[in-house]
Write a protein that binds this DNA or RNA. Structure first.
Length: 424
RNA sequence: CGGGGUAUAGCGCAGUCUGGUAGCGCACUCGCUUUGGGAGCGAGUGGUCGUAAGUUCGAAUCUUACUACCCCGACCA
């Protein structure tokens, strides 16, 4: 991509509406723009990041044996009446009417729709287990949207629903999803914890959340300094404990001491059991030929929230520092004097094309600006590797490799292999 | 929904107390000079001052109502 053609409205000053660092940087780096409270347009650069995360999620879900579908965002009241959630849910369920005065809602989640699909189309235990997912825009009319896309009203989510013949089978799928979520977060490259969580009003007997650790997290979690033990302090509050007093105490599992941390919930896995299947009469015939209520699980990943979470965990005073896995570009070629110097222009374009042919996602800064402006923007948008081509190239045929993390070195422009050792 | 705050050009802000017809920095346009850390000079574009009503000869400024947005809380698969 030529930067001169890219819609990339970077800002020196963050709009005052932004409070947390990820929100400020997402606005400054030209990733998103607000349309209304909690509702955002994703600009080209932001969308590239969103798609990269989405693709990692998709690949790992497919690898786990799950199947992708796409359900509607608009859902009829009748389905929600079956589980009584039309009544139970508060105003966060945005209700609308069509031209015939029929009631619909904007989907905040899809248990009803997916359960309806499965009960109508799956009749035998032989077709199970099934794990069906989608990556789709959700709408929840939050009481108070905040922190940009971190807690938006409209947001992108991967939600999946498993249908199992019994508890043991559900347990197996649950563990597969647990492992899949670990793979996703490790591939993206985030520091996270799996925490025991409140299973909430939805019922069910097991629930774990995946939290990206960050100061601005909305949840408070207690973790062990040495083991995997981690728990959402919402659970402790119910028992009336004072959270701050836990700091430094021995971990309940006997390993290490308790530390109190802030976390951003980016994933949640749930064993629903038979709750929805019973309400909606979702049965299959078991191996004895008798109707058997399905056991369900549901598993969510906040895709758009992950963008913000990744920034919260990876930034400095200059801007975003993308993990390479989700960076909008792999390489930014900073061409100094692109407009004036034929040699620079030709060499930059050749390098650009060569790197593209090697499979890299390359940005070429061909704008009429100086080194400072181009570097500042590159650092703001967080591209992992810059290749500076300027007077050094004219003199010695060398370009400077400058990583976002601060390393730099000079290399002959023809030596692309050396250049790309950076990514090993 | 309770508490607090903000609203003036794309972004950041001044002007409001003390009413006189809107300004600064950045960005943007044109020209020339620049080009390895957000360049310089010159000339420009862009605002029904959140909305509505009121007071007044005159309102960004005073009064009232409303709206939007942000923060804290409550809420949240």
């Amino acid at each position: 991509m030529l930067l001169s053609k890219l819609l990339l409205p970077t800002l020196k000053d963050a709009p005052k509406e932004a409070e947390v660092i990820s929100h400020k940087l997402m606005l400054r780096a030209g990733l998103v723009r607000k349309v209304a409270s909690g509702i955002y347009t994703w600009l080209p650069l932001g969308l590239k990041v969103l798609r990269k995360i989405e693709n990692i999620v998709r690949e790992e879900m497919d690898a786990s044996g799950a199947q992708e579908v796409l359900m509607p965002m608009v859902q009829p009241k009748e389905l929600w009446n079956e589980t009584n959630r039309w009544e139970k849910m508060g105003p966060e369920l945005l209700r609308i009417k069509d031209r015939h005065e029929r009631d619909f809602c904007l989907g905040p989640t899809h248990e009803e729709v997916i359960t309806d699909l499965i009960r109508n189309n799956v009749k035998s235990y032989k077709e199970l287990p099934l794990n069906i997912y989608q990556i789709q825009t959700k709408f929840r009319d939050e009481v108070r949207p905040r922190y940009g896309v971190m807690r938006g009203r409209e947001f992108l989510m991967k939600d999946s629903y498993s249908f199992n013949i019994d508890e043991a089978c559900l347990q197996s799928t649950y563990l597969t999803m647990r492992n899949t979520y670990k793979n996703i977060l490790e591939r993206i490259g985030l520091d996270y914890k799996i925490v025991a969580a409140d299973s909430g009003a939805i019922g069910g007997d097991a629930s774990e959340e995946f939290h990206v650790l960050a100061e601005t997290g909305e949840d408070t979690i207690a973790i062990s300094s040495e083991s995997e033990f981690a728990i959402n302090t919402e659970l402790l509050l119910k028992e009336g404990e004072d959270i701050s007093s836990l700091e430094g105490k021995p971990s309940p599992d006997g390993k290490g001491t308790i530390q109190i941390k802030k976390g951003i919930e980016v994933g949640h896995i749930f064993k629903l059991g038979k709750v929805y299947a019973e309400d909606m009469k979702a049965n299959v015939l078991n191996n004895e030929g008798k109707a058997s209520t399905l056991h369900m699980g549901c598993y969510g990943v906040g895709v758009s929230r992950l963008v913000a979470a990744a920034i919260e965990q990876n930034n400095d005073d200059k801007g975003i520092i993308w993990p390479h896995s989700i960076s909008p570009f792999d390489i930014n070629i900073i061409a100094i004097g692109y407009e004036k110097d034929q040699q620079i222009a030709e060499a930059s374009l050749k390098l650009y094309k060569d790197l593209q042919e090697m499979g890299y996602d390359v940005l070429l800064d061909d704008r009429k600006d100086g080194y400072g402006t181009k570097m500042k923007d590159s650092e703001l948008i967080g591209v992992p590797l810059n290749i500076v081509i300027g007077k050094q190239y004219i003199e010695t045929n060398e370009v400077e490799l400058k990583s976002r993390s601060g390393d730099s070195s000079l290399n002959d422009i023809s030596n692309l292999k050396t250049i790309l050792d950076f990514f090993k």
